[in-house]
Every structure is written in C-alpha cells, then in structure tokens.
C-alpha cells in the first residue's frame, strides 16, 4: 500500500470539517474492508484517510422510533444488524440476508454506511432496503438532506454522496401490516461467491389479491433497481403461477445486465426472470413462515 496519514476525529463536526477539502484523495473510512482492498490493489491511493471509528458510539445505534420506523446507525456493523433483535422483529428478511453476506469477519467490521456508500451493486442489503422504501440521511458542512435509496445509488459504484458528506442515518419506514417477503440470492460459482443476482420481494395480500408488491433486483444490474412496472402489474392480481410468470417476464425485459465472468448478459437476464418468479413465490409463502432468505 502507498503511504497515507490516518486522522481519527472524535466528533461528526470534526470529521465533516476534515472532509471539507478540495483534495480528492481525502476519504472517510469506516470499517474499511472495501477501501483496504482498493488501496492494496492501488486502485485508490489516498493521502489522507479520515477514520470514523471514534464516532461509533453516537452513530451505531439500531432502534425503532415512535412512528415505528427503523433507524440503522451508519456505523453499526453488519454483524450488529444481523444480531439485532430490533431488526429481527422489524423484518427477518434483513437478519437472514446478513448470514450469507460475505463472511463473519467482514460483517464484524463492515458498516451499514460503508455498505451503502460503496455503491457496489453486488451488496445484499441495498435491494432489501430499497424494497422497504428506505431513506438515507446525509450530513455535510452545508447541512442535512435525506435521499431515498433509489436516488442515492446513482450507478455502478457511484452514489449521490459528495466527497465531503457522510451518511448519518438510514431510515426504514414502518412496514404495513401483512407485508411478507424474502431475499433470494443466486451465486453462479461457489456457494460463497458474490451474488450474480439478488432479488428482494415483498407482497401484501388483501381479499385474495395482491394489494401491494415490491420487487428490487441487484447484482445482475449496474445498480440495484426497483421494478415498479412489475409491482404495478401485480397489484390487484390473484397470486397465480401465470401472474408470477408474467411478472418475471416483465422483470427480465426491464433489466439490462452486464456480462462478466459470472455470466453473459443473456444468461443473467434468464436468471433475473427465474429469481424474480421464485422470490415472489417465496414472499407469498413467507406469510406463513415469517419471511426468509433463499440461497440458490
């Protein structure tokens, strides 16, 4: 690795002021798992890293507010999320998705904020949070703003974050009653590979028809996306095999996968189709078994 200096501010204000610079090689670092990889491969050679480790006590809380919204502190580790009874109570989908996310050592160190700010489309949490209408609260020297996740993730490894801004909260609105869901992860190589496709699907039934469907796809796409066309197609329909089949076709038609060593674009589109259909079936089945995660 190239040399750099590591600054360790004690407060958010101090951290924001250190980041408020024109120097593009000044970067914040939380758990550092992704950044360390980039620095070791010399893809990224910072002069200064601003460690957020000492802000952890104030920015790592996981709690429900009075409205029932879930707040994930950006410096909460992914393992904190995995083991949080608050999260498990809120939705078991997140809890269970965490168990297959990378490995325990990474989850012990990687943070919610870093996970989102990295903008890597292969991460497991963004599609789930996106399907749950999560918002990201951002602070900079200029002030605070709140951005919905689809707007936060702007592309392949890019987000709406300015270099001088930090995520200060991740808010997941209280779930409507009866919303059940799943996260389905498809790996093409070994079982512990990165996902080639991730699908988060949630459904709410009313009177025998789909009252609400939420579907987000990641990994096969350049960034996680909500499939709103699929969602509106399903609304009001009976959850029959044909409907899910058609929804899956719609999903596949709407994504434009990038080819890589894990699969051609055409194959990935086929997989999106299969995964969306299976995720919808599982989301529906999850009504009786309280959510879950499937690993294909």
């Amino acid at each position: 690795m190239n040399p750099f200096q590591l600054l360790q501010p004690e407060t958010l204000e101090e951290a924001l002021s250190l980041l408020n610079t024109d120097d593009p090689s000044v970067r914040p670092v939380a758990g550092g798992t992704a950044l360390m990889l980039m620095m070791k491969s010399k893809v990224f050679t910072p002069h200064t890293l601003v460690s957020l480790q000492r802000l952890k006590p104030s920015l790592s809380g996981i709690r429900l507010d009075d409205a029932g919204d879930l707040h994930l502190g950006p410096l909460a580790s992914l393992r904190d999320v995995e083991r949080s009874p608050v999260v498990a109570e809120f939705t078991p989908v997140i809890t269970q998705a965490m168990q297959t996310l990378s490995n325990v050592r990474v989850r012990n160190v990687a943070t919610v904020g870093g996970h989102l700010a990295h903008g890597d489309p292969h991460m497991d949490l963004p599609p789930i949070l996106m399907a749950l209408d999560a918002r990201v609260r951002i602070s900079g020297q200029a002030g605070e703003r709140e951005v919905a996740l689809p707007e936060f993730l702007t592309g392949y490894y890019t987000t709406v974050l300015n270099p001088s801004e930090l995520i200060t909260d991740v808010v997941v609105p209280a779930l409507p009653n009866g919303l059940s869901g799943t996260y389905l992860k498809y790996t093409a190589l070994s079982a512990d590979d990165w996902p080639m496709c991730g699908v988060a699907a949630f459904v709410r039934m009313q009177g025998g028809v789909v009252a609400e469907a939420r579907v987000a796809v990641s990994a096969a796409t350049e960034r996680p996306v909500r499939l709103t066309g699929v969602e509106s197609f399903l609304r009001g329909r009976r959850p029959a095999a044909e409907a899910f089949e058609e929804a899956a076709e719609l999903a596949a038609a709407g994504v434009h996968p990038l080819a890589d060593i894990r699969g051609s674009s055409g194959y990935k589109r086929e997989i999106v189709k299969v995964c969306v259909r299976r995720a919808l079936e599982q989301a529906l089945a999850a009504r009786t078994r309280n959510g879950g995660v499937a690993h294909e």
């Binding site: 590591l6 325990v104 012990n108 160190v109």
Partner: peptide, 13 residues
C-alpha cells in the same frame, strides 16, 4: 472479542 481479517485491518486501529 470479534474475529477480523488481519489483512484488511489497519494496525493503528
């Protein structure tokens, strides 16, 4: 008390 990957963890931390 937490397992970490020593190759991705800065010693100063």
């Amino acid at each position: 008390g937490r397992a970490v990957s020593g190759c991705l963890y800065l010693a100063v931390l």
